Amino acid sequence: MSEELETNADKILAEAMRMSEKIEADIAQNPKKYRVLTGDRPTGRLHIGHYFGSLKNRVRLSKLGVPTMILIADYQVLTDHDAFDKISENTKELVIDYLAAGIEPGENVCIYPHSHVPEANQLMVPFLTLVTKSDLDRNPTVKDEMAKSSIPLNAGMYTYPVHQAVDILFCKGNVVPVGKDQLPHLEIARQIARRFNNKFCKGIDPIFPEPHALLSKTPMIMGLDGSAKMSKSLGNTIMLSASDDETAKAIKKAKTDQDRHITYDPVNRPEVANLLRIISLCTDETPEAIAERIGDGGGGMLKNTLTEALNEHLRPLRTKRAELEQQPELIKKVLNEGVEKAREIASKTLLEVRHVMNMEI
């Protein structure tokens, strides 16, 4: 990365952090000022990394009264996965995980797959006219895919950031909970909103807000094998749907180190620190206090403590999840109602867009 790009990235991060803190301070007092857009790709059931990293925050925001759009990004699965035969099944599994975690669909919360909202997807063409090839080439995700892929990059993946902008802007989302690594995607959405408003809304109120990041405060949860990130594809996860025994079995295989005395040292003992953080997320103790309590108990006691804490913390979720698995009609109802609401919102936005682009008939 050039020095100029690094400087620009630093400026974007600094501004995102400033705005995130400002929004966090205001959102509890003025929840209706904001509309959150968040979601997942339906590539399988969710794991504890999703739960602690995003699901719990979605529940918190929705219960504060923040209008919340939860997108199931089924079209995006086609950009880099061949498992399209499981998209419908995985979509329903996501809804079960959402509801089990405490998300309550209704007036304030909408859950929907974007393939069922054609009015929103019609924004893709005008949005593509507002970005250049250079804009897309600079996106880190696109660059990474171009570098590591052994097959030609398909146009769906190449234009992935624009489709994300569609997902955010069709409902006029102005807050997107993300990690720092996702800021470049959000910056493209901000650019598209700005360019659309500047081009088509001269002398009138802008149609699209420039969305801001709500940066996650939860540290990234590493995989149990000590890899950089918990991932289903690497098989280093604990699924929310796992049983107590399956959880215990997975944790037994977790990577620690040779030092028997347990300390919280994220720099020099990242694997041990990761397990301590997960316990902390379950019990609300500090990682340092947990490490001191375990002391010379070693990796065995650390893993036993994590197993007990995680199983106890997830017990209500897993009980509810098992009940929801027996209610397929409820899951279908949630999706149908979410699609209906999302299409209504998208239709209103599309009418505004056609009006300012002089495409009414």
Rank of each mutant, 00 (worst) to 15 (best):
Y34S: 07
S62C: 02
K332V: 08
G102N: 08
T43F: 05
T319I: 05
S243C: 07
A250L: 02
E107T: 11
P105M: 06
N236L: 11
E210H: 05
G298K: 13
P42I: 05
M124W: 01
E292L: 12
K133C: 06
T256M: 00
A250M: 12
A101H: 11
K22S: 09
S2K: 04
H116G: 02
V36R: 02
L37T: 10
E93P: 06
D74V: 12
R315H: 07
P31F: 01
K303Y: 09
L64A: 09
K32I: 02
I151Y: 00
G298A: 10
L240S: 13
L99A: 12
T7G: 00
L169N: 05
T129A: 08
L55Y: 05
S231G: 12
N154D: 04
T349Y: 10
A213N: 12
V162P: 00
A248M: 13
L314Y: 03
I87H: 06
N154C: 06
L306I: 13
Q122R: 13
R195T: 03
P140V: 07
N268D: 04
N30Q: 13
I23R: 03
L324N: 03
I278N: 08
D296A: 11
P266H: 04
L317I: 11
I87C: 08
P287W: 14
I290Q: 07
A16V: 02
E288K: 15
E352N: 15
K255I: 12
L128E: 04
T283D: 02
K332M: 03
L78C: 08
K333T: 01
F84Y: 14
K143F: 01
Q182M: 01
D10A: 15
E312S: 10
G299D: 06
D259F: 14
Y98L: 11
R41L: 00
P211T: 04
T349D: 05
S280C: 03
I96C: 13
I262W: 07
P287Y: 11
I48Y: 11
N358C: 02
Q29Y: 01
I204E: 15
